[in-house]
Design a protein around this nucleic acid. Sequence first.
DNA 1: GGTCGTTATGTTATGATATAACCCTTTAAA
DNA 2: TTTAAAGGGTTATATCATAACATAACGACC
Lengths: 160, 160
Amino acid sequence: MPAFQNAFESHDHAHCADDVLARVRVIVQKNKLRLTPVRQRTLEILLESHKALGAYEVLERLAAEGFGHQPPVAYRALDYLVEQGLAHRIRRLNGFAACMYPGADHEPAFLICKSCDKVAETKGSAFDPALNQAAKTHGFHIERSNIEAMGECASCKGVL
Amino acid sequence: MPAFQNAFESHDHAHCADDVLARVRVIVQKNKLRLTPVRQRTLEILLESHKALGAYEVLERLAAEGFGHQPPVAYRALDYLVEQGLAHRIRRLNGFAACMYPGADHEPAFLICKSCDKVAETKGSAFDPALNQAAKTHGFHIERSNIEAMGECASCKGVL
DNA sequence: GGTCGTTATGTTATGATATAACCCTTTAAA
DNA sequence: TTTAAAGGGTTATATCATAACATAACGACC
Ligand SMILES: [Zn+2]
Ligand SMILES: [Zn+2]
Ligand SMILES: [Zn+2]
Ligand SMILES: [Zn+2]
């Protein structure tokens, strides 16, 4: 288990990203995933920063590197990563972010800084208890939940 | 306080919607809101069902009733309702739903049935404790949070 | 009531996001 | 080595959202 990295603070991000990639490689082996060149590069691009990227931003990068130039190229790679739990979709930003806890079987939740646009993923493992309670009351079976919190990170708050 | 209505079960929805509208009227008075004809109709349209509506679906309805025919007409009315807390945006569905607890100062959370597309809003009042904890760890100040849970309602599960 | 800044509502045009449908290539299984 | 399934490229189009501008209604004030 890696040391906790605060996405909002400056840190050795190369190490931070490599660490995720190392865990991804294990999962790829274990689950016999086909992490093809486009998919691999897409994941690496997402891992370059703690910001969520739009599909078209990813596409630009891929195209510049010799992959296809059309939207489905990016969407397919991104969708695959999301399906495999290696990336998450951040609806509020119409964007995608690499999963920081691949293989950890968690309900993703995100802290999104409105000032610097960085995104931190939290590794909660279960659903919000209040949500669970509500589901029970409604007779509803939750399969997936998405939590996106908007606010401001400490670094940005300090600057203001 | 109105009786709890399970959005997924059949119920006296006319009463359910009227009840919300009654509470909206109080808020409009109290906060001196300008619930103009387009805005009022937009809210009523959202209240017709427990499904989230896309902006263009709302627009179609408004246009048919003599209001403007262009997207900004719908988006402006919807954005206003959201700003005033009378409606919520459901990012996962690219849609909007009337707030079922107007004036109740709550962090909205939604249960979305993948089969019948109905949406139930829960009246949790505070942030997810795990999310709060994560925010604390990250030195992050949460302003708003959105919780959207996908799954299946009891009615639909029974049918399958 | 008339003046005037603010808010509201309509328009046209465009931007941004996402998917459908098709074709050929690669992969891995029989 | 044949063959079905998955991948990756294309063109075209669907869907969602906003920018920019013009006119009309409102409301505070004199
Ligand atoms: Zn990092
Ligand atoms: Zn920040
Ligand atoms: Zn109802
Ligand atoms: Zn249902």
